[in-house]
Amino acid sequence: MSVAILREGDYLIAAILSDLTDKEVVKLRGDLIDLVGKYRSRGLVIDVSALEVIDSFVARALRSIVLTVQLRGAHAVIAGIQPDVAIALVQFRLNLHPLRVALDLDSARTLLDHLTSGEAEDGR
């Protein structure tokens, strides 16, 4: 699958490298939920900067990953939504609440640092 998943300390970084089929999106959701538990990750970043199209299915899947990972005790941030994709999402009127986003990977890490600071070492 064209997603690179790497572990960075307490965080899990999933970089989508090219357009995904629906089946791959569903598999990614399962994989990430499992990995967050396996590595006891406190934060997850999904980098979508390589995606030139985010339609309703992918948007809902991202939202679902964020919510599910939260129930597993981790914070999730979507990073790198392209400008044209952002315009399309707004014009489409997709309800993405409560998607947490950052401009790029670096800002996503900073946001996660902020969100996880003050939490107990294994405060789940």
Binding site: D22, E52, V53, I54, D55, S56, F57, Q82, P83, D84, V85, I87, A88, Q91, F92
Partner: peptide, 17 residues
């Protein structure tokens, strides 16, 4: 011009699905 190619591709993705 931008962002039309993205808007068009998104609409087509929906009807294809």
């Amino acid at each position: 011009p931008r962002p039309d190619p993205t808007l068009i591709a998104t609409a087509i993705s929906e009807i294809a699905r």
